[in-house]
Each structure stands twice: as C-alpha cells, then as structure tokens.
Design a protein around this nucleic acid. Structure first.
Lengths: 333, 333
DNA sequence: GTGAAAGCGCTAACAG
DNA sequence: CTGTTAGCGCTTTCAC
C-alpha cells in the first residue's frame, strides 16, 4: 500500500504538504502542488479512507437502513441513493431490518461504529423507537423516524389521488386493501383515500358508501381468504373497484382475481401505489400512484449533507392511469 | 464517544486488557474480565470499527459490486448476502456499475480505500477486465471475474433444463431470446439450451430444427420489432415456444405477446430464467429455471471468508413448471 | 507557505 | 496474566 509518506518522500516534501494538496486545501504553492500531483500519479496513491475517517471522526459512508432491499420499491430507492451518494464521493452501506424494530436497533448500533456521515433510514415500524442514532446526522425516508427530517412522497395526497380517480370513473362500491396499520405510510395512504369519501358525502354525494377496508400486509402475500370472499360476492354487492396500498398488493390481488375468474379491469378495477418498474408490464398494465423515487433519493442525500437543515421534504405523487382502471360498466351496478 | 481508555480507567485496568476481552482473546483472568465487562456495559462502550480497521489494515466490510441493485434477481442476492454477512459481523457496502466496465473499475478503486475484507463482484461485462482488486480477497458471483473463485448457478445446465422441458412438451419450432452475448451468463445459458438440440438431432430426432435466435438485452426492454415480426408469422411457421434468458425478458415477452393477441400459453409457451419472486404471480404464472439464490449468497460469503480456498462453487438450478408452458397443441403444428 | 509532531482509537508486541 | 507503548495513515495545529 502506498501511503502519504511515500508520496511525500517521492516528491521531496513533507507529509503535511501532501495532505494539503490531497484535501484540496489551497495554501500550497503551485510548484509544490505540481510536484506532489506528479508523485501521486506516478505512485498511484489513493488516500486511505479508513485512516482519514479515524482522524476526522467521520467516514465517507452513508448508512442506509431498509426493511428489505429485495422490495422493488426500496431497491429502486437504494439504486438512486447510491448513485447520488457516489456523485458526492460517498459510499453506501446497506442493512436490512426485515421489518423488525429490534434488528433495526442492532443494525444502527453496529453501523454507528463506522462513524458514518449519516443515516438514511426507512424505519421498520412505528414511530416510538425513534432515536437510536445518537448525534449522527439522520434523515428518515418514506416514513418519519423520531423527529429527524423526513423525505418522502405525500402518501396522504397519493391516497386522495387514488380515491378521486376511482370516484371519477363512476365507481361507487369500492374496497380498500390497507397495509399494516402501524406503518405510517400505510396509515396515511388509507386516511387520504378515505378523506375523499368523507368530503364527497358531505358535499351531496350520499350514494358513495364508505369503502370496505381489508387489512393486509405490505408484500405479495395477502389475506386471501377475506379477499376471496369479497370477490365471490354476488355481482351487485361486490366492489367494482379495489384500491391497494402498494403495487405488490395490487399484483397479488390481480393474481387472486384471476384465480377466481374475476376479470380485471372488466369486472374489477384495481389501482396500486408506488409505480415499481414492473407495474407497466403486468397484464393488464397496472394503474397506480407513482412516487417520484429519483427525486426522493436525491433530496434525501442532499438533506443528509445539509447538516443545518431541519426541514422535511414532502414530494407529490402522481397518478399513472394504465389499463387496470375503467369506467364502471352499467351491468356491475 | 466512549473509548477503550474510558473503559480501562473505569474498570481500573489497562487498555491492553480491555482490548483483549473485547477481541475475545482468552488470556485474561476471569475477575478482570468481569470488571471489564461490567465497565463496558455501564459505559455502553462499542469498539470503533474504523480504528480497529486502521490498525488491522482490514475492515469488517464486504464490498458488493452489482450492475444494478434494482434488478430483482440482484436485489434478492444482495438481501441474502447482507443477511449472511451480518451473521459473521460483516457489513456490506453496495456499489452499482450500471453495467459499465469503466465505472466498475472506478468503484473498485474507490472501495479499495476502505480496505474491505473482500470484494463480492457481479461483473459488469466480459472477462478481460479481470483484476482490479489487487490483493484484496475477491469472489465472483454469477459470472466469472478474472481467475477469482466463482460462485454461481450452473447456467449451462439451466439452459439444458429449459430445452429439455420444451422438447419434452412436444415443441418443435422453438425460438430463443438470448441475452447480451458478451455476458458469460447469457452465453452459457444459450449454449446449454442449444446443446440439447444438437444432441437430440444426432440421436435421431431430425425433426427438431435449430432454435431461432433473437438477440436481446437483459432487462425488460427487448427487441420489440423482431419479436413482433416473429409473433405475427403465420401459425404454421410461428414458434410454439420461446425460451428467454431471464425472467424480465419473459415478462416483457408475455406483455408483447398479449399486445399482439397471442395467448400464453395456449398459442405460445414461454419459459424464463432466475425465478424472481414475482414469477409466481404473473398472469399466467411463469414457468422458469430457478436459481438457488440463497445458497449462492451463503456460499459466496463463505468462500470469501475462507481465504485459502480457491475453489469455485457451481450450484444446480431447477425447473419450476408453472402455467406458461404447455404441451404443444395439435393445431399449432 | 511549509515542516514537524501530536494524536484519532485500537491492537500487538514486549517486558515484567 | 497484565501493563506499557509503538504505530496503523491521516489531518491539523503550531512554529518557523
């Protein structure tokens, strides 16, 4: 390994000088700088990040904590986070919590010993467990974490978008497949969704019944039994549209509908949330509420680096109408 | 930050002793050990990994280089790798190469400055650029990288499995949607696939024509024009089955077939490769060659840690027959 | 503007 | 068995 001393010796200067040119410090005469740079090139010197981190009591590492990197939405997020971080000369270490608050705690403790530049956390559970990161800069992504700045899509608004879309399409019997209630994301999406119905009923559309709620996880697996029962109801009682709280649920739901001979979108309108890459390839293509993933990733890293800022960023989602949502057909009502 | 000195002082021992109990070194009397452990607990001491890494000239970090963490197969792999690594007290930093050999080179150079325990590389491109990792332990995953040990599925065997399945189903006009030829994975899968046809023809099944090859990328996007032309051929010339070199291609293909009114599997059998989580939820469910992802991840980490070993591990894939593959119907031949 | 030197937190000789 | 100490590679005073 070639160290700063080797470079210094080779260039005939002191280590201090080398350090100064390497760390872009300006107080170096141009001739010395040239000599040092030549030596660096010749020797192929690369500053040792570990040593630098120790000295600075801070490493060039962003610690990214996700529930599950294999979740397409999170992996998408991780991709963009790493890409942006890389632009800033930062590396990303990833840890999975598997949705378990306890392992989240452990992961944070472990990663803290790396003295990372900061934590980017997609929290595993509910809020309460909010402050394991000590005085290391922390930004929550997607869901709040303690009182750290939050960068996320406006889930509530997204829920409203979905509801408005379905109502606009003429649907009146609607069900909502919710996510785990302890997750604020799931909660907010649902609340947003329901809020539109509340308002509509107050504004003289009393024919809009309250959406039927079905509890679900947040992954492909869903409460097949309850859903099946719902899908098998007589046509005039069955919901004409089901909104889900993420795309995986929607995909799982379409699969289930198919298994029971319910045709999407003819017999049932489905709408997802997230707009994972696959959503535009399903059969039929999934209508969904798209999160601005790339913008979220960018904003998250920038917020992390702007250590002064205490502001959250809530970005607006947008409806992507594709093929799974249709004007309700007369024969269904 | 509480350091080893604080613990030493608190426990009334020397830093050396503390270090010895922390690093599980045995030569410590039980009473001192107890005192130290008490102090550690009381102070909430956590050894600073950065300092330890500097001292040992090696960090507890696995550098994972992937083309694209958002690729479902790779994110699956990453999940399991991180999980296994975590069992060994190792952290994982991820870097994306976006399939570009040049950025791969840069990422490796950058990550090297972390003096990681080792590199786990899913190489971006072809073999030649094989040795950027210097003397840091390196294990290739999924595809060979230089002459480092390789842990991967047997892609060739997987290709054979797919071919055998289609032939066994009675298909005779078959097409193969290949991946980028410079990727050994793609190459091997294709070669394996074709080898079965060669053998069959030599063993007296001359009615098996050589599969038509269609070049493709490795992602959802495919050569729509060529494929469309193929799908629109008259029924007696059109292939009755198309094998793809990964699940994303297969999903894209099903989408395209649907767009042109070709029904899978009635009019066309499709088979994928990888068995990403989503494959069992597509409509219809995708028949595919499953890679033992978890075993690969485990083996990869273990190989990395067994610094002596120079052995590669080639694990066997297995056919998952689901709904997209069918005995060829008479009217198609 | 530059060099010398202290020291970040830790481990591993080495001496006792 | 335990304490002392040098030093990993780097940055940053502090003198000059």
């Amino acid at each position: 390994m070639v160290t700063i001393r080797d470079v210094a010796k080779h260039a005939g200067v002191s280590v201090g000088t080398v350090s100064r040119v390497v760390s872009k410090n300006l107080t170096v005469s141009s001739k010395m700088r040239a000599a040092v740079e030549a030596a660096i090139l010749e020797l192929g010197y690369k500053p040792n990040l570990i040593a630098r981190s120790l000295r600075n009591a801070k490493s060039n590492i962003i610690a990214l904590i996700v529930p599950d990197i294999a979740n397409p939405h999170f992996s998408q997020l991780a991709l963009h986070i790493e890409t942006v971080a890389s632009r800033f000369g930062l590396m990303v270490v990833v840890a999975n919590t598997h949705g378990d608050v306890e392992v989240e705690r452990k992961q944070i403790a472990t990663l803290s010993t790396l003295t990372p530049t900061g934590f980017l956390i997609i929290p595993a559970g509910s809020n309460p467990t909010g402050n394991q990161t000590g005085n290391i800069r922390t930004v929550a992504v997607d869901r709040p974490y303690g009182d750290h700045p939050l960068v996320s899509a406006d889930h509530y608004a997204g829920g409203r978008l979905a509801a408005a879309h379905l109502i606009g399409l003429g649907h009146r019997r609607i069900a909502y497949l919710s996510g785990p209630e302890e997750l604020s994301v799931a909660h907010n999406r649902k609340e947003g969704f329901l809020s539109v119905f509340d308002e509509a009923r107050q504004n003289g559309k009393p024919d809009l019944s309250v959406p039927e709620l079905i509890a679900g996880g947040f992954d492909y697996a869903l409460d097949a039994e309850t859903l099946t029962k719902l899908l098998l109801k007589p046509i005039c009682q069955r919901p004409t549209a089901i909104a889900t709280s993420n795309d995986q649920q929607a995909i799982g739901l379409m699969r289930l509908a198919r298994d029971h001979g319910v045709s999407v979108p003819r017999d049932l309108t489905v709408i997802g949330f997230d707009d994972v890459p696959l959503a535009s390839l399903t059969i039929p293509r999934l209508t969904t509420i798209a999160q601005p993933v790339q913008a979220i990733a960018e904003r998250a890293v920038i917020t992390l680096l702007d250590t002064e800022s205490t502001n959250s960023s809530i970005l607006q989602p947008v409806l992507k109408q594709r093929e799974t949502s249709l004007t309700v057909s007369g024969w269904l009502v």
